[in-house]
Structure formats: C-alpha cells, structure tokens
Measured scan of single mutants.
Amino acid sequence: MDSLVVLVLCLSCLLLLSLWRQSSGRGKLPPGPTPLPVIGNILQIGIKDISKSLTNLSKVYGPVFTLYFGLKPIVVLHGYEAVKEALIDLGEEFSGRGIFPLAERANRGFGIVFSNGKKWKEIRRFSLMTLRNFGMGKRSIEDRVQEEARCLVEELRKTKASPCDPTFILGCAPCNVICSIIFHKRFDYKDQQFLNLMEKLNENIKILSSPWIQICNNFSPIIDYFPGTHNKLLKNVAFMKSYILEKVKEHQESMDMNNPQDFIDCFLMKMEKEKHNQPSEFTIESLENTAVDLFGAGTETTSTTLRYALLLLLKHPEVTAKVQEEIERVIGRNRSPCMQDRSHMPYTDAVVHEVQRYIDLLPTSLPHAVTCDIKFRNYLIPKGTTILISLTSVLHDNKEFPNPEMFDPHHFLDEGGNFKKSKYFMPFSAGKRICVGEALAGMELFLFLTSILQNFNLKSLVDPKNLDTTPVVNGFASVPPFYQLCFIPV
C-alpha cells in the first residue's frame, strides 16, 4: 500500500510540474494548442506526416506557434517570411542545433551535424575549407563525379535492359564520391566492405524516417530501456565508426604531411598542428563522427533524390523527352556531361530543381535551437528552445509555385524558357546551418541524371499514369515507394 501511495504522489508531482512548466512558459512563447500533461501535443500531431499537421496548425495559430513534445516546448516556423527572418536575418541567433537524443547517444555531441557552439563552428569551418581545397564546386571533385558517372552508366548497362530496382546502384554512385573525398578511394560496386557500408546507410535513412524515431526523440528514456529499431540505428553508426577508425589508422601509418590526399589526411594534419593548443576540438573521436556525418549527409540524401527523380521522369515521359532533346543538342553522344553545360541547359536545370522542390526530401529539416534569449515577432523565446522549420511550407508555397503539388519544371523557367532562380528554393535548409555539401549534391544530381539520360531511355513496367509517387515514409525524410524500371541503351 505504501508503495502505491508513493507512486501516486510521484505521478501527481510530475503532472503538477508539467502543468507549471507549460503555464509559466506560455506567456512568453508564441500561441499554440493546449498541451496535455506529460505528453504535450503529441496526440494532435500525425507522426506519419508531421508536415501536414504543421500546415493545419498554422492555419489556426499563424506562421509562428508553439507545440509541446512531452514536456519540451518547440517553436514552429511556417512559411517563407518566418523562416527567412529566423535563419537568414537572425542567422546567428537561430544557428543552434536542437535536442536530438538519439544523435546524442550516437555521437556524444561530436561531428558537424549535431554539434553546437565553438566545437560546431570550428569543425564546420575546417570541413568547408577542406572540401573547397579539394575542389568542391571546382574541377578536381567534378572529375571524381564524372568518373563515377561513367562507372554508374557501365553498371546500368550490365542490367541488359531487364527490369531492376535502382535503389542499390543509385546509392553506390554518391557513396563512392564521398569515399573518394574521405578515403581517396572508390570501391567496386561488388566489394563486400562497400556493400556493408551501403547497407547500413540505407537502413539508417529508413529507420530515421519512421514514426518510432519521432517518439524516441521526444521521450528519450525509451532509447535506453525499450527495444526497437533505434538500437539497430545505433549499432549501424557504431559499425561505421569502427570502419572509419580502421581507415584512420591506415592513414596514420602512411600519411605524407607534405601531400595530403583526402579529408582524413587533412584532419590528422590539423590534429598535429593543434596538439599544443589544448583542449582542441580536433580529436580522433571528432574525426570519426565528422566522417560519419559526411557519409550520412552525402550519400543517402543524394541517392534518395536520384531514385525519386527517375520515378518522376517515368511518370512524366514528356519531361524526359525534353531533357534528352536538350542533352542531344548541347552535349551530344561523344563526350561526358560537365558542369559548364548546365548554363546552356535551362530546361534540365529546371527539372533538377523541380525534383528537389517537389519531393521535399527533408520536410522539417533537422531541429534548430536559439543560442540566446531572443525577441522574435513580439515573442520571447528562451535560450536553448528547439525550433522546428517547415521546409515544406517554403518549397510548396502556392504563391511562389502555382499548383505546388504538381510536378512542373516551369516553376523554374521564365516566359522565355530561361532558368529562373527562386529564393524559396531551400531543399538544403538556409542560413548558417545550410548543408555543407550543397554544391557537391547539386553537381552530382546534374551529372548523374544527364549521364543516365544521355545513355538510356527509361521504360516503366506499368502505365506511367498508374505510377504512385507518394512517399512511403514522410517523417525525417521523404522516401519514394518501391518501383522497377528498364534502362534501355540509346
């Protein structure tokens, strides 16, 4: 009986604490739906499609509103004006990374994606500088992407125009580009180590996009005490870190300090320079996690976009025909596509942009946080508050993009057929937390897609009208449904 009384008292205290925290903070924060004790607004949000729920709530509470995930307040920004004001106009104040408990377990605050403060700034600055020195957006990395595009075309030829699921092959190409940047090595598509790495990356994007992960991140005790797919994700990350550590040891034994070959060499050189400046942010643990982040951000996002792009091109054969006509006119058949071609191919450029806009790969991006107490639109948001960005509300804005739910390359073309930029184009987020590999991803999408369409016609196994382009999961990332196609050599 005594234990029951204690339990009831504990629960009562928890409920009172929950109510007090919510009521004391709500006077400062933007308005929002009334949260339930302990669980907050979790029942009012469709976990399978958070973005749709945010759109519905914005119609009631406006472009800036507050939700509670458990006891934790989260300020939501919906629509271009609110997102721009926060991420661009007040970029420094909104540059923090929001709480992501599962990532905390995986990387302990290291790396480039989930770190904060001085650690994040130094690692991000170093990573950007190193990638630029190796030619991100310049010639040397373009050579690597072109080489991988040629290998991709050869792998597709091996399908002999038979029906195939493109998931694996389209994942190999961007993964190999990242391998060449980090390890100075590309792998054969049949290499077992490479296959294991690909498998872990593919599993992780599916797990991260599941409703279960949303629950884990908002009720963090689940991570330590409950079984579930989150444990598989943590094991996959541990596998990748151990693999990278092996490569780091190989580099330490063979590195030429006067001739760095890749990202690992550059990081080890930085560690050597910083060894007298303790404590340094440049450690082996930081290198492991930064490399894992580059793999995660640079492989599955690009391969998922490529997979979605081919599905949309199957669905819209008239678009595919126009792209192939432009390829034939500008590039021809006797040389590989290059980035200089893009400025002469406005329709193809528009298609690449429209694919990214339409699929809305990361509907709410990753959570941000404010780095200080900030007054925002007459609300006071306390330091450390998590900020949720609705990228969907920007990419699918119906004023900027008429009929935003329709796939239409003319969203990025003017009346004369010239490519038209849009400030609403934010597939990689915006501001200080914009994806480090934005330029690389854009290069890969253009070169891989043009190389495929230069060499193959795409054949659907069903009537294009019957192809479903609805994402199968739409949590962290929008993942396309399973499909097969035939690559018919031109």
Score class of each variant (00 low, 15 high):
Ala309Asp: 00
Ser280Val: 11
Leu19Ile: 12
Cys175Gly: 07
Phe239Thr: 14
Gln356Arg: 05
Met240Pro: 00
Glu250Val: 08
Cys13Gly: 10
Lys375Leu: 07
Lys249Arg: 15
Ile99Asn: 15
Ile205Thr: 11
Asn258Glu: 11
Glu285Cys: 07
Glu274His: 08
Leu71Phe: 12
Leu201Val: 14
Gly91Leu: 04
Ile42Arg: 05
Leu29Phe: 07
Lys275Gly: 12
Val83Ser: 04
Lys206Arg: 11
Lys247Trp: 07
Tyr225Ser: 05
Leu57Phe: 14
Leu391Lys: 10
Val352Gln: 02
Gly228Thr: 05
Arg157Ile: 06
Asp256Ala: 14
Gln192Val: 12
Asn466Arg: 08
Lys118Tyr: 11
Leu19Gly: 05
Thr302Pro: 15
Met198Asn: 08
Leu467Tyr: 05
Phe263Met: 10
Gly109Ile: 09
Val355Glu: 01
Arg342Met: 14
Lys138Arg: 10
Gly25Val: 15
Glu288Met: 14
Asn56Gly: 13
Val83Gly: 02
Ile264Thr: 09
Asn231Pro: 05
Ser422Ile: 05
Asp188Glu: 12
Gly46Ser: 09
Leu449Val: 12
Phe226Ile: 11
Ile123Ser: 08
Asp165Ser: 04
Cys486His: 09
Glu444Ser: 05
Cys172Glu: 03
Ser115Tyr: 02
Asn116Thr: 12
Leu388Cys: 08
Lys59Arg: 11
Ser365Asp: 10
Arg357Met: 01
Leu156Ala: 02
Leu440Thr: 03
Asn204Asp: 06
Gly296Gln: 15
Asn41Leu: 00
Arg105Val: 07
Ile374Pro: 00
Ile181Glu: 01
Gly109Leu: 10
Asp468Ser: 10
Cys151Gly: 07
Gly70Ile: 02
Ile99Lys: 15
Asn116Val: 05
Ala82Arg: 02
Thr34Gly: 05
Glu154Gly: 07
Leu77Gly: 00
Pro101Gly: 13
Asp262Arg: 03
Cys10Gly: 14
Glu246Gly: 10
Gly137Trp: 11
Gly332Met: 02
Gly228Ile: 05
Ser478Leu: 09
Leu314Tyr: 02
Ile45Glu: 01
Thr348Leu: 05
Pro480Cys: 15
Arg335Cys: 02
Asp265Ala: 05
Lys459Pro: 01
Phe482Lys: 14
Ile359Pro: 00
Leu15Ser: 07
Ser220Gln: 08
Asn259Leu: 08
Phe187Tyr: 11
Ala297Gln: 15
Val6Glu: 06
Ile264Arg: 04
Val462Arg: 10
Ile169Glu: 03
His251Gln: 04
Pro211Ser: 11
Ala173His: 01
Glu274Gly: 11
Leu29Ala: 04
Lys459Ala: 07
Asp408Val: 01
Phe428Lys: 04
Tyr243His: 06
Phe282Leu: 13
Gly137Pro: 08
Phe114Trp: 11
Asn259Gly: 12
Ser53Thr: 11
Leu71Val: 13
Thr229Phe: 09
Pro211Lys: 08
Asn455Ile: 04
Cys151Lys: 15
Gln340Tyr: 11
Ile207Gly: 04
Phe448Val: 02
Arg186Gln: 03
Glu81Gly: 13
Ser478Asp: 02
Lys270Asp: 05
Glu288Ser: 14
Lys158Cys: 08
Gln146Pro: 01
Ala291Gly: 06
Lys160Glu: 10
Thr301Ile: 13
Asp188Phe: 04
Phe407Arg: 00
Phe412Arg: 01
Ile141Lys: 02
Ile389His: 02
Val83Met: 06
His276Tyr: 07
Pro279Ile: 12
Ala161Asn: 07
Asn289Cys: 13
Gly442Thr: 05
Glu300Leu: 10
Val6Leu: 15
Ala297Thr: 06
Ile387Thr: 05
Glu326Ile: 03
Glu326Cys: 00
Phe114Asp: 12
Thr167Ile: 03
Ala291Leu: 11
Thr302Leu: 11
Phe295Ser: 01
Leu54Gln: 01
Leu77Tyr: 03
Asp341Leu: 05
Glu142Pro: 02
Tyr424Gln: 12
Phe487Gln: 01
Ile39Pro: 01
Ile244Gln: 07
Ile207Arg: 06
Ser422Asp: 05
Arg139Val: 13
Thr229Leu: 11
Pro427Gly: 05
Trp120Ala: 07
Pro481Asp: 03
Glu354Lys: 00
Ile244Ala: 04
His368Pro: 01
Ile169Tyr: 09
Thr320Val: 11
Gly442Tyr: 05
Thr386Tyr: 14
Pro346Asn: 05
Phe126Gln: 03
Gly228Tyr: 06
Leu71Glu: 15
Pro211Ala: 07
Asp165Arg: 00
Phe226Gln: 02
Gln44Gly: 09
Glu203Ala: 08
Pro37Gln: 02
Glu288Leu: 15
Asn403Gly: 07
Pro367Leu: 05
Asn398Tyr: 12
Phe448Ala: 01
Glu81Leu: 07
Lys247Ser: 09
Arg108Met: 07
Phe110Ile: 15
His276Asn: 10
Ile264Ser: 05
Leu294Ala: 01
Lys249His: 11
Leu208Gln: 11
Gly137Cys: 12
Pro337Thr: 06
Lys118Leu: 08
Leu313Ser: 03
Arg108Gly: 13
Leu9Tyr: 10
Val75Asn: 00
Lys399Pro: 06
Ser127Ile: 15
Ser115Cys: 08
Phe114His: 12
Phe126Thr: 05
Pro409Asn: 00
Lys420Arg: 15
Ser51Cys: 10
Ser343Gly: 13
Phe267Ile: 05
Lys52Tyr: 08
